[in-house]
Structure formats: C-alpha cells, structure tokens
C-alpha cells in the first residue's frame, strides 16, 4: 500500500523539474514490466519519442489485477495526469483505455494516443476529439485465404487458447472470419497445460487449429508442449503471436514495435501542433510470416509460394 502514497510524492517532485525541461508524456502500460508484448511496445516508444518529451510510465498490471483493482489504479493514474497536465498521454493496450482514458480523459484537453486496442476501439469510447491511435488487428481474412490454399479439405477450424477476455474476443473475430469462409469454427479455452493437451487431441477432428496465447495457462511446459504437438497432432496449426511460433507450423505475427513506433509518430505530430481528431485511426499493418520447418516438415502441408518466399523459416529447438 505504501507505494500508493509514495508515487504521487515522487511524481510531484519530478514535476518540478519536468515542467521546465521539456514536453511531458505519460505512458500507460496496461501490463507490468516483464510482460514481453507490453515491454516491446513501451521500449520502442521510448526509443522513438525520447527526443520529443520526457516520458513517465505507469503500469496497470492488467494480467494480475482484478477489475476493481484496475479501476482503482486507473483513478489514481488519472489523478496524477490531471495534476501533471502532461502534453500527451499514451495509452497502450486495452486496459489503459478501459480504465484511464474512457472514464477520465474522454474529450478532455489532454491529447491521447492509444495503441494496441484489439479489433475495435469503439467499446472504449473511441472515436474521441482528443484521441487518435492504432487499433490492433490481425489479417484474419488473408489468413483464411492461406488456410484454404494450404489445407485442401478445409471445413472446420478449432481455436485453442488461454481462458481470458481478450482471448475470447480474439477467438470471436477468428470464428467470424472462418464463418465468412464457410468453415465450422469451435473455440476451446483452457486454464492448465493438461487441459490444453486434451484440447489438442480433441481438435484432431478439425482441419486446422489456431493456437491462441498460452499466457495465463498454468504449468505451461514448452518442451512438453512441442513434443505433445509432434506426437499428437496431424493438423495444420497456426498462430497470430510470435511467441507462439514454437508450437505452430505457420504464424503471421503482429509486431509490438509497430505500435510503439506509431505511438511515437503520433506524439510527434500532436506535439507539432496537429489536432488528434485530424489524424485518422488506423489498424496495424506489419505482419511477419514464420514457418516452423521442424513441425511443418512432419506433414504434407504446403504453404503458398509467395508465403514461402517471404516467410522466416523457424526451427524448434528441441530440449
């Protein structure tokens, strides 16, 4: 608890120097330090924007906080923002907008840049006059095209993922895309490794398996997971996160750096005098194809030639 009292104090002390030094940016990281995705966005932002403003980061730690805790943290951070009157606030990932921007900064005088809101920012009150940003999407339609090209008898898609709200949203959008491609889609959410293994076995009735994030799956064992997939899976597997590359044959990975970099560009544009509403909200556009040759080689699946030409070939390091 003591940190709750000290933070405002340190922050106020830092304001004395910040005021006179440079522009001030408050960066709200939805996660805690150490979470790879959030860290990479923040790191890229700090790298690109450090010349533009003095950056004060705040962390919501959404992965380990309850809804109530997140509300409290959001309120606390909002108070500090009102006190500090920063030149701009960067809200990274959904929780930042959900617990800080939407309740406290919507249409305020403080410009807001958001990045990493999954699929649709409208639930968090966007668009706003004082905000712009980059929505996190995944080219599900294009991936469906790749699936159709690779898996000749494609009728059913199974989605296996950790059980949390973001994964459920993701699976909904993928199911929707699958349905648009006349596929049957089924989602299996698991909370532990054993269930995950069972889900893999069960998913053998489908033609392709989308592995969502393993973040939040207890007792996850990487080597066992790989071995399990090698021995119990004959279906085409794919993923959207690059940290899932060891477990799938193909992944089209989003780049967290794209969000960090774009947040910095928007910050620069806004600090240069552009109004946020003048800048359209756009989706992320950089995706990197990976082929896990150690898994794919066990099957007869053949990815499209243009994918093979452009993809990064990956080999699982077996322990």
């Amino acid at each position: 608890m003591h940190s709750h009292f000290l933070k405002p104090l340190f922050f106020c002390l830092s304001l004395v120097t910040m005021e006179s030094l440079a522009n001030h940016c408050i960066y709200i990281n939805a996660y805690s330090p150490g979470y790879d995705w959030g860290d990479r966005i923040q790191k890229q932002f700090e790298k690109d924007a450090q010349q533009q403003c003095l950056i004060t980061p705040y962390y919501l730690d959404a992965k380990h906080s309850s809804n109530e805790q997140l509300k409290e943290k959001g309120r606390e951070i909002a108070n500090l923002i009102k006190l500090a009157k920063p030149n701009i606030v960067i809200a990274a990932d959904d929780a930042s907008s959900q617990y800080v921007v939407q309740p406290y900064l919507r249409n305020s005088s403080i410009p807001v840049v958001y990045v990493g809101i999954n699929w649709d920012p409208r639930p968090y009150g966007y668009p706003m006059n004082n905000a712009t940003g980059m929505t996190e999407v995944w080219p599900r339609q294009e991936v469906m095209s790749i699936l159709r090209h690779t898996v000749k008898t494609l009728t059913k898609l199974t989605i296996i993922s950790a059980d949390n709200s973001l994964e459920r949203t993701d699976s909904r959008y993928i199911e929707q895309a699958a349905q648009e491609h006349q596929l049957t889609a089924e989602s299996i959410f698991v909370r532990n490794f054993n269930d995950w293994k069972k889900a893999v076995v069960k998913a053998q009735d489908a033609d392709a398996i989308f592995l969502g994030t393993n973040q939040g799956i207890a007792d996850w064992d990487e080597s066992q997971a790989i071995e399990w997939l090698k021995t119990h899976n004959q279906r085409f597997t794919f993923a959207s996160q690059d940290f899932m590359r060891p477990y799938v044959m193909f992944s089209l990975s989003k780049s967290p750096e794209e969000f960090g970099s774009w947040a910095a560009k928007l910050t620069t544009a806004i600090l240069a005098g552009n109004q946020p509403w003048q800048i359209p909200i756009i989706p992320n556009q950089q995706f990197t194809p990976y082929i896990n040759e150690s898994l794919l080689s066990l099957t007869t699946y053949e990815l499209p030639a243009y994918i093979r030409r452009n993809a990064i070939v990956y080999r699982t390091q077996t322990p």
Partner: peptide, 18 residues
C-alpha cells in the same frame, strides 16, 4: 501477385508498406 495469388489481395498492404 494478383495474377498468381489473385485471391490474396490482403498482402498488398503489407507489401506496399514494406
């Protein structure tokens, strides 16, 4: 690309960006 992968228009965006 259109000629070969006529059904995959989505890759245009990332290609152009790259």
């Amino acid at each position: 690309l259109n000629k070969i992968e006529g059904e995959f228009a989505g890759n245009l965006r990332s290609y152009v960006n790259e």
